[in-house]
């Protein structure tokens, strides 16, 4: 559902004008400092508290649209907090998006012995 919503916004969104090239390093620092990692993991892997953002991260515009328009009525412990432009500028979001895009593709579970032969059982 969330993703559909985001895509809806993307279609109507104007590209975020960014003078400078987005910075991966600054994006990583921001991602850690403004707390995205808390719920989404340091590699965007997601957790019980937030969806996975990688691999194939959303583009900056979609991320910005999403984080500025989260549902304020969701109970606080299940919610993605909203980040207004005052809290996190479009340029900041562009850097975060660049950082997320720089994260190498994850391993396949079949290449990890601890995950390879698991069976769902009866």
């Amino acid at each position: 559902m969330a993703r559909l919503l985001v895509i809806g916004f993307v279609l109507g969104a104007t590209a975020i004008a960014s003078a400078a090239e987005p910075s991966v390093k600054r994006g990583r620092d921001l991602y850690m400092n403004v707390g995205c990692y808390l719920c989404h993991g340091t590699e965007g892997q997601g957790s019980g508290a937030g969806l996975k953002l990688t691999p194939d991260p959303l583009p900056a515009e979609a991320i910005a649209n999403f984080i500025r328009n989260t549902d304020p009525t969701t109970p606080s412990f299940a919610a993605m907090p909203s980040y207004s432009e005052k809290v996190l500028s479009d340029a900041d979001v562009a850097d975060i998006a660049a950082f997320l895009a720089s994260i190498p593709a994850p391993k396949s579970p079949d290449s990890i012995p601890a995950l390879k032969d698991l069976k769902p059982g009866k």
Binding site: G41, T54, P106, L118, P120
Partner: peptide, 21 residues
Amino acid sequence: YEASRQAAALGWDSSPVSTSR
């Protein structure tokens, strides 16, 4: 189950250690 298995692989080698690992 399979979705969880796939999700567990994400961030498998990260440090700090992922909770799935």
